[in-house]
């Protein structure tokens, strides 16, 4: 009985730690937001700047919020895998198993058996991206609408792609730049670099355009309702009636649908690019051919 009490206590501790992240971010935002009544389409707030030898390092809302997302996701994972057991188990174990099975099926389906170990990485990118975009729902600045966050992920994916291309054979990799004719090499290099750039711009552009359009529509509706309802008596004329409805619909599209879709697409493109960089069967066939050749030479 005492054991069960400790279990529930630990559950609540995990949930509290999970909720502490967003609360901390909201408090920080409220403390640092300058008071103004203008339209506010600015970048991330800069909390403070760390002096560095080469250049100053600004600590912005982007970094704080992405760390908050990482922190909350960590405790969420601790919560849903708490009390996991082979038979029986809690209801939340079903959710955890569903996530693991789905990402495993997605990864092996898109990348093949060779890359089955990529499932945790893909799930991590998808979860980070989705929850970062969903931060707008509680009024926080989404880290994914800053090019630096998404650019970092895209560079990570680019490093993975290049690593697997090198693993396929360095000579093979260098030769692929002179394909189909050697003088097209500059274009091939550009298309190589365009992969992470387009991935980063796609995600960042979608999230940022959503928030810009939402702010513009909300401000326009506020202005329109202050013109139309300016004759109402008392406090009534200060309430922007036109703002009821439309911004919510836009938010469902831009924040929920678009954010989750972009997370899915980013993970999907990661899988496709990485598995495209390393044709496992091709590699195995070439390795076998080389081995056979060497065996033939020895004879």
């Amino acid at each position: 009985m005492k054991n069960k009490k400790a279990f529930i206590l630990l559950d609540w501790l995990y949930l509290l730690l999970m909720a502490a992240g967003p609360v901390f971010a909201i408090v920080l935002k409220v403390l640092y937001t300058p008071i103004s009544s203008d339209i506010d389409i600015s970048g991330a707030l800069v909390f403070f700047t760390v002096k560095m030898p080469l250049w100053d390092l600004p600590v912005t809302e982007t970094q704080v919020n992405s760390l908050v997302v990482i922190w909350s996701l960590f405790w969420l994972c601790r919560y849903i895998t708490h009390g996991i057991s082979v038979r029986g188990g809690l209801k939340r174990q079903i959710v955890a198993e569903w996530i693991v099975e789905k990402t495993k099926a997605l990864t092996t389906g898109n990348m093949g058996e060779y890359f089955a170990g990529f499932a945790p990485f893909v799930a991590a990118i998808m979860g980070l991206s989705a929850f970062s975009s969903l931060l707008t729902l509680i009024g926080l600045y989404p880290p994914t609408s800053d090019i630096n966050t998404v650019g970092g992920w895209a560079i990570l994916v680019f490093i993975l792609i290049t690593y697997y291309k090198f693993k396929c054979g360095p000579v093979h990799y260098l030769k692929s730049f002179g394909d189909p004719v050697p003088f097209l090499a500059p274009l091939n290099i550009i298309s190589e670099v365009a992969t992470p750039v387009s991935m980063a711009f796609r995600h960042y552009g979608n999230v940022l355009s959503g928030s810009v359009i939402s702010v513009l529509v909300a401000t326009a509706l506020q202005g329109a309702s202050s013109i139309i309802f300016s004759n109402l008596p008392g406090i009534l004329h200060e309430i922007p009636f036109l703002q009821i409805g439309l911004p919510a619909v836009l938010s469902v599209y831009f924040d929920l649908f678009s954010g989750l879709l972009q997370a899915f697409i980013f993970a999907m493109l990661t899988m496709l690019y990485v598995s495209g960089a390393f044709p496992a069967e091709d590699y195995a066939a070439r390795k076998a051919a080389r081995k056979a050749k060497r065996a033939g030479n020895n004879k």
């Binding site: 970048g43 711009f201 940022l208 697409i265």
Partner: peptide
């Protein structure tokens, strides 16, 4: 949905340029 997202990229390049030009 995948294809739409990839096709959207060119439009988003323009959007990024427009945002840079405005802000």
């Amino acid at each position: 949905l995948m294809g739409c997202a990839v096709a959207e990229t060119t439009g988003l390049y323009a959007l990024v340029i427009a945002i840079l030009l405005i802000f």
